[in-house]
């Protein structure tokens, strides 16, 4: 539950967010999370053209080359709480419990990802260089 406190403070930094765990993310686990259809996962809204997954998302920008455009800290910040980068974004905040309305009782006070999942997804996205 310590990381819940982290969820409240991790987004305080403007522009970037450092590692939540100090443990390097695992890109393979990150890929599994990113494409898991049972989770509110990246591929619902985004696409990665190097992946064979069908019916990838179209609502958000392609993630191709995201590692060329952003640092790991900037990618992490956008996963943690994309509102910090774009206040009007429709992207859900994956590691925030603040500024939300009528969160269902099953999910109240919980984040979508746990801290290591944030690190794992960040690590995978940082492999997407062109």
């Amino acid at each position: 539950m310590l990381w819940l406190a982290a969820a409240c403070t991790a987004t305080a930094a403007q522009g970037d967010a450092g590692s939540l765990t100090g443990v390097p993310g695992d890109p393979a686990r990150g890929l599994a999370i990113l494409r898991d259809p049972s989770l509110p996962s990246c591929l619902i809204c985004h696409s990665v053209s190097s992946l064979p997954d069908r019916d990838q998302g179209v609502l958000g920008p392609s993630l191709d080359g995201v590692a060329d455009r952003f640092t790991a800290d900037a990618v992490r910040l956008r996963i943690i709480d994309a509102r910090k980068a774009s206040p009007e974004t429709i992207m859900p905040p994956y590691f925030a419990i603040d500024g939300l309305f009528r969160v269902g009782s099953r999910w109240r006070g919980k984040t979508i990802y746990d801290p290591q999942q944030v690190e794992d997804v960040t690590a995978f996205l940082m492999t997407l260089a062109e």
Binding site: P37, P40, L43, I44, C45, R54, D55, Q56, G57, V58, L59, R83, I90, P92, P93, G99, L100, F101, R102, V103, G104, W107, K110, I112
Partner: peptide
């Protein structure tokens, strides 16, 4: 139009602003 829930979405975010687009097929 009020955003809500852990995913922080309103009905309008999808059904007003993005109808006709695909969500996983």
């Amino acid at each position: 139009t009020t955003r809500r829930g852990q995913l922080n979405l309103s009905c309008a975010n999808c059904h007003q602003d993005h109808w006709g687009e695909k969500l996983r097929g």
